[in-house]
Simulated scan of single mutants.
Amino acid sequence: MEILAFGVQADEKPLIEQAFAGRHDVHCLDVFLTEDTAPIAADHEIVSSSVNADLNAEVLRILAAGGTRMIAQRSTGFNNIDLDVARELGLTVARVSYYSPYSVAEFAWTLAMAVNRRIVRAANRTRDFDFRLDGLMGRDFRGRTAGVLGTGKIGEAFTRIAHGFGMELLGWDVAENPACRELGMTYVDRDTLLAQSDLISLHVPLLPSTHHLIDAAALAHVKHDAVLVNSSRGGLIDTDALVGALRTGRLAGVGLDVYEAEAGLFFLDKSLEVVEDDTLARLVTFPNVVVTSHQAYYTRDAVAQIIDATVRNVDDYLAGRRSENVLVPDAQA
C-alpha cells in the first residue's frame, strides 16, 4: 500500500519514511492538501494530512472521487476537517489524540520569556553591535499571577512550569484539573482571570464556543501591563481586536505561535512575496509582539509521537480496528 503524505516538512520526512519502512510505501509531499492539490491523491486509498491542510467539503469530495477512503491527520486539532461531509462520503478520518504536552507548554513559556525580556529586540541589536539596554527592561514573573485558559494536559504542563517560577495560579476551564488544584491553582471565571493575571496563556481547543474567546470585550478586562501568549489555535483571538488593543498601549507584550488566518502563510516561504494580509502585517510591526509559525509542537519527541500514532492509525484502519483517534466513523460506533 502506498500512502501519500501531504505537508511534510524537511525535518519530518526521514522520520516518516523510517516509521513506515517495512510496513507500507510512503510518498512525502511538501505541498499542503487543498482543492488545488487534492487531485494528486487519485488512486491512493490512504492520505495523511498536516495541521494546515484545508479539508473542506470540496477537498473531501475530490479525495473520495479519486478513491481515497482514509485520512490520517498528523495533528490533534481537526477544526480544518468537515467531519459531516467526511461521514456522508464514508471516509475514515483519524487524528493524533495525544503527543508530548511539554513541547507546546515549554514553547509557550519560551514566547512568554522572549516577550517579557525583549529577547528578539536584544538579539537584533547585538547583531549590529548595539549593546544598549534602553527599552529592554522586563519584569520578574516570580510572585506575579499566571492565568491559564484551558487546564488539560498542555495547560497542566504550563501550570507546573509557572508553579516552578513561584507564580500565583488562576485557571479557567469547563472542568477543573485536580493536578492543577494541587499546585495551588484557583479556578475563576474568564473575566476575573483576565483582570487579575500578569501572564495569560491559552490552551483550549478551537470550538464554536471558544472562537474569539479573546475579543475586544475580553481585552478590555486585561491589565495594561499583562503578557498574552497563544500557542493553541489562532481563532481563539480576534486579531483585529488585538491589534486595536496594542495600538492603544494595552498589553506589555504578546507572543503568538498561531494566527487565525495562517492557512496559506505559515509553513511557507513568503519572503519574496507581498503579503496581502494587512492585519498580520500590522501585527508584526509592534516591537512588543513576537510571532512564530506554528512551531510549538515541533520537537523531535513530539513529532516522533505524532508519526508513531499516525502509523498505528493506518494499521488500525487496515485491520478494521477502532481507537480513540478515530473521528469518523465515530469511535464509539
Rank of each mutant, 00 (worst) to 15 (best):
I3K: 09
V31F: 06
L33N: 03
A38Y: 01
A41P: 06
D54A: 13
D54Q: 14
Q73Y: 07
D84E: 14
D84V: 07
V104A: 01
M113F: 13
A122S: 13
R127E: 10
F129Y: 11
R132V: 07
L133M: 15
L133V: 11
D140Y: 06
G143L: 13
G150A: 02
G150V: 04
K153A: 15
F158S: 03
T159G: 03
H163D: 15
G166H: 10
V174W: 04
A179G: 04
E182N: 09
E182H: 04
Q196G: 03
S201R: 09
P205D: 06
P208G: 09
S209V: 12
A216H: 12
A217H: 08
A218E: 03
N230R: 08
L236V: 12
I237M: 06
A245M: 04
L251P: 02
A252L: 08
D257Q: 05
G264D: 01
L265K: 11
F266I: 14
L272T: 14
D277G: 05
L283G: 10
T285P: 06
N288T: 09
S293W: 05
A296I: 01
A296H: 00
V303H: 01
I306L: 03
A309S: 02
Y317K: 13
Y317G: 11
R322F: 15
V326A: 07
